[in-house]
Design a binder for these strands. Structure first.
Lengths: 260, 260
DNA sequence: CGTTTAATTGAAAGCAGTCAAACTATGTGG
DNA sequence: CCACATAGTTTGACTGCTTTCAATTAAACG
């Protein structure tokens, strides 16, 4: 095996395209140095793509797996009547198609929300990594299971919460997830979605999303400057959104500093 | 390793509590005989439980993983206002808490839909199996990914389809999934849920589910005798439900014989 | 600056929910 | 075997949250 490399210990998370992804893989336990190195050594091609670009299309038979080094993406499906549903939002450091690593034909599309830099890893390389390094394999499973947990919560969100709670909930979810990537600044974050996309993620219409956002703002729960969302009353927003972070499987500490 | 055992090749699927689960694990490729044996040799305790029993409760820190040898179960969550959402229905042969194998605290509850026999496997035994046998590990990942795909489709169902399509869709899904377990008889199946549970799975109310079922029946798409659902017009029901089996990642062949 | 995309607001319509009651099946105990 | 209790299904009338439709304003972009 490779010797441990101290340079990896405290590297700049923006140096390597897999840095944030690796951090995510290690969320449930540090990987052996050789495994970390193996992840970083994965062969890949880095691409810079514009917002709206497709990373995967439903029906595709993909030959590589994409890791979001920078930028945002979302998973979506279209219904027969042309309506769109967004089922997940991928944030920097997420692997976008682990799905397609072991399943042959993609069951949904993935589209970029913003300009992004994406690292494509050959399917086989990733499969071998997971097979040959059990610690990486279980880390991949764990990350996949957290993604499933988020999906379950989304089913609850669109199935059983009213519009106000849905929007509040998704904002809370973004906040907590982004915090794990160090992307909360000044008590808020830059929401990389239009209100129409927010509507497609919550099973509402863009018109109604607009009304709900306004009402949350009027009630003093959030404030907005363009796409930037600030949490004026983080506690109350969680209450309105019926939000509990348990399903995200992250450490339990409050992250929003309302003073800022 | 253990020698291959020809007795496994064509065993009665009802002999061993893991038989159907193993079949599911082998859906994407035959496992080496030693791996199959290792699955079947997993230590476990078999329990017979009544409908309504909890296999896991949200917040639990489970020490074992349950496999449904017989019977049905469902995953659920309660919202703060007391509403229930069902996020998945587990059918015979499904492993119920792979989630809890690698995540510490359960993010949802699992409850039995019917009387069932359940095999509890110690968490550690399963973890070791996955780590020591890469082929089993990838099979577990693949099965987990199919479950995720079903979850995504449920988000679409609840988020973007009207009540009629939702009910039609979930009926189609059950039909195809049950067929993979050989549980379609006479062109229909025994639906092991009350209309209220069906409502909680589709984000509707039981009153409205009742109306929709009736309308599907009046339109000649299905017929019902108690909980038994018969498909009178399988093709049309799929159209109404906007159903495509792609997301289930099963073989593509039509399974409903309407003549019966 | 014109053009395009996104956000905002108002008025009206509709799908599904709520409330309430009746009906059916099943099971229990006398 | 029947009276009664319980759980689930069915139906009707009414309400309401969101959608739909339409128009206006604001922001982003070349």
């Amino acid at each position: 095996m490779l010797p441990p490399q101290s340079v990896l210990e405290h590297m700049n998370p923006f140096e390597h395209p897999f840095a944030q992804w690796l951090e995510q893989l290690e969320h449930f336990g540090r990987l052996p140095a050789a495994d970390r190195q193996a992840v970083l050594d994965l062969p890949h091609r880095l691409r810079r793509l514009d917002a709206g670009a497709y990373l995967v299309r439903e029906g595709d038979i993909p030959r590589h797996c994409a890791v979001l080094a920078k930028g945002y993406a979302f998973r979506q499906k279209l219904t027969g009547s042309g309506a769109r549903q967004i089922m997940a939002v991928c944030i920097p450091g997420d692997a976008v198609d682990l799905q397609n690593m072991f399943l042959d034909v993609s069951d949904h599309s993935v589209q970029l929300l913003t300009q992004a830099s994406v690292a494509d890893i050959p399917r086989e390389a990733l499969q071998q990594l997971v097979r040959n390094r059990p610690a990486v394999g279980t880390a991949v499973i764990a990350v996949t299971l957290v993604e499933s947990s988020i999906l379950r919560e989304w089913v609850v969100n669109v199935g059983r919460r009213d519009s106000r709670a849905r929007i509040a909930h998704i904002l809370c979810e973004f906040a907590v997830r982004l915090e794990t990537r160090g992307m909360i600044h000044d008590g808020g974050f830059e929401l990389p979605m239009t209100q129409e996309q927010l509507a497609d993620a919550t099973g509402l219409t863009s018109v109604h999303v607009n009304r709900v956002l306004k009402s949350l703002e009027v009630d003093g729960l959030i404030s907005r400057r363009r796409r930037y969302i600030h949490f004026d009353n983080w506690r109350a927003l969680q209450d309105v959104g019926d939000f509990s972070r348990r399903y995200l499987h992250v450490e339990d500490h409050d992250i929003i500093d309302e003073a800022s």
